[in-house]
C-alpha cells in the first residue's frame, strides 16, 4: 500500500500565493486583481515583485470581474483573488456574461472556501460555490487538496486557455502530495488502490479520506482513494474504472451535497454504471462560527464520517 506522509501543515492559499509568485516571474502576461484581501489571498509577493501588473480593485468585486474580462482582450491572463463567497455568489452574473458566455481567459481564484473559513461564520462560508461554477458552460472547476497541489494547479491554469474557477481554503492542513507535481487539469489522481470501496474526495476532504482508509484497513477493508481535484471536466474514466472493481462509492467534499462533487459523480454513475453511493457533504445547511476542526466535526466532514459512510455503502452492495 502506498503511504502518504504529511510533510507539515500548510494552508492551500499559500500554495496559490507561491504559484502566483512563480507565474509572475515566468509569464509576463499574468496579471493579478484583488478586492481588498491581498494578505488573505497571499498575493503580497506578486504585488511587490510586479506592482505594474497588480490591480487593487477595492471592495468592488463586480467591477473586478468585469475588468478581468476586459484585460483578456489585450492578451492578459488575469487572476482575480478574493474569498470564495465574493468570488462566486456576489458576482455570478458578471462571471456568467462577461467571463463564461464571453469565453474570456479569466482565472477566478477563491480562498476561504467552505466551512473551514471558521470563526467568521455563515456569511463568509460558502458551501454552494462548486455548484454555481460548474453550472456555467465552459467553466473549469478545480478544488485542490493541499499546498503543493494548489501551487501546481495555479501554475497549470495559466497554460489552459479558458475560464477557470480555482477553489482553495484558509486553514493549515496536511501537505502530502508531491512538491513540483505535474498538475493535469481533468485528470483524477488515484492516491491509493483498493478493492472494497471507492472513496472520491476533493479539497480538504482528500486527506481525511486517506485517514479514513487507514481506519478501514484496520477493519480489513481495502479502500481505493481518488483525489478529484477537477470537478469539471470530471474524470469519468477514472471513476468508472474504480467502481467496476469496488462496486460502491463514497464521495467527500466540503460543500453542500446539492450541486457538489457528489452529484457530478452520481450523474456519471447513473448514466454508465448505477452504483450505491454515500455522500459526505453538508446537508443543505448554512455553516456557523467555530474553529475549522470543530466545524468539520460538527458537520460530519472528517475521516470518521467517511469510514462510517464506507461501511454503510459496502453493506448496501
Amino acid at each position: 500500500m502506498k503511504k502518504h506522509t504529511n510533510t507539515g501543515n500548510k494552508d492551500t492559499r499559500s500554495g496559490f500565493g507561491a504559484g502566483l509568485t512563480e507565474l509572475g516571474k515566468t509569464n509576463e502576461n499574468v496579471v493579478a486583481l484583488c478586492a481588498d484581501l491581498t494578505g488573505s489571498l497571499k498575493m503580497d509577493e506578486f504585488k511587490e515583485n510586479h506592482p505594474e501588473r497588480f490591480f487593487q480593485a477595492g471592495i468592488a468585486e463586480a467591477n473586478m470581474i468585469g475588468m478581468a474580462a476586459g484585460m483578456t482582450i489585450g492578451g492578459k491572463i488575469p487572476f482575480t483573488g478574493t474569498f470564495a463567497n465574493f468570488s462566486t455568489g456576489r458576482v455570478y452574473d458578471q462571471i456568467r456574461q462577461s467571463v463564461a458566455y464571453s469565453e474570456k481567459n479569466v482565472k477566478i481564484c477563491a480562498s476561504h472556501a467552505g466551512i473551514t473559513l471558521g470563526e467568521d461564520g455563515a456569511t463568509h462560508q460558502i458551501l454552494e460555490d462548486i455548484g454555481l461554477m460548474k453550472m456555467l458552460p465552459g467553466m473549469t472547476v478545480i478544488n485542490t487538496c493541499d499546498y503543493n497541489q494548489t501551487k501546481a494547479a495555479t501554475i497549470a491554469i495559466a497554460k489552459h486557455h479558458g475560464p477557470v474557477y480555482l477553489r482553495f481554503g484558509r486553514p493549515k492542513v496536511a501537505n502530502f502530495t508531491p512538491e513540483n507535481q505535474n498538475f493535469e487539469i481533468g485528470k483524477a489522481v488515484v492516491l491509493q488502490e483498493g478493492t472494497d470501496v471507492t472513496i472520491i474526495a476533493t479539497g480538504h476532504l482528500v486527506w481525511e479520506a486517506l485517514l479514513a482508509s487507514e481506519i478501514l484497513m484496520e477493519h480489513g477493508i481495502s479502500a481505493e482513494v481518488i483525489n478529484i481535484h477537477t470537478i469539471k471536466p470530471l474524470d469519468k474514466d477514472a471513476i468508472l474504472k474504480s467502481v467496476a472493481k469496488t462496486q460502491c462509492v463514497v464521495t467527500a467534499e466540503e460543500h453542500n451535497y446539492l450541486g457538489g462533487l457528489g452529484e457530478s459523480v452520481a450523474r456519471v454513475l447513473a448514466e454508465n454504471a448505477p452504483t450505491p453511493q454515500e455522500f459526505i457533504a453538508t446537508q443543505d445547511t448554512f455553516g456557523e462560527s467555530g474553529t475549522p476542526a470543530q466545524l468539520m466535526d460538527k458537520y460530519g466532514l472528517n475521516a470518521d464520517a467517511i469510514q462510517k459512510a464506507a461501511l454503510k455503502v459496502i453493506a448496501r452492495t
Binding site: 468585469g66 475588468m67 476586459g70 484585460m71 482582450i73 488575469p78 458578471q94 456574461q97 462577461s98
Partner: peptide, 15 residues
C-alpha cells in the same frame, strides 16, 4: 457591465 470591461481593456492597452 460595460464600463468595467472597458476599464480592463484600457488598462491592458496601457500595459
Amino acid at each position: 457591465q460595460g464600463i468595467s470591461v472597458a476599464i480592463g481593456a484600457a488598462t491592458a492597452k496601457k500595459l
